[in-house]
């Protein structure tokens, strides 16, 4: 994959990947990166999986835009406040 002067190796592609997905790559570096994507299926799959990983984190664990709260038991509220009082009485971290 590295015989053409403009062709990055997969290892070099990896070094540019973060800036590419953050849209911080421009000019000739971006051209070389995108040229590699077209030529190398492994890196194309890798990039797609990397982007999917970024997206899934927010989709699974992000704060919901329209949250449905659970019923908060009074005992839990009392336990939290009691734990806070005990914590405040002790030595702070």
């Amino acid at each position: 994959m590295s015989k053409l002067p403009m062709m990055l190796t997969c290892g070099e592609f990896e070094a540019f990947l973060f800036d590419y997905v953050e849209d911080r790559l421009s000019g000739y570096a971006r051209f070389k990166f995108e040229f590699h994507i077209k030529a190398c299926r492994d890196c194309r799959d890798y990039l797609a999986a990397y982007k999917k990983t970024m997206a899934l984190g927010g989709q699974v664990l992000g704060a919901p835009a329209d949250p449905v709260p659970a019923d908060l038991p009074d005992e839990l509220v009392a336990a939290i406040l009691a734990a806070r009082d005990n914590d405040a009485d002790g030595a702070p971290e």
Binding site: M1, S2, T9, C10, G11, E12, E14, C40, D42, C43, D45, Y46, A48, A49, K52, A55, L56, G57, Q59, V60, L61
Partner: peptide, 30 residues
């Protein structure tokens, strides 16, 4: 990567599915 800089780890072709995040198995994996 191997000595020539080629990627050698196994790669996966992703299923093109918009609701992947709703699959129980995928949520558990995250």
């Amino acid at each position: 990567f191997d000595d020539t800089g080629c990627r050698v780890e196994p790669t996966y072709t992703l299923l093109d599915e918009p609701d992947l995040a709703e699959r129980t198995e995928v949520r558990a994996a995250i």
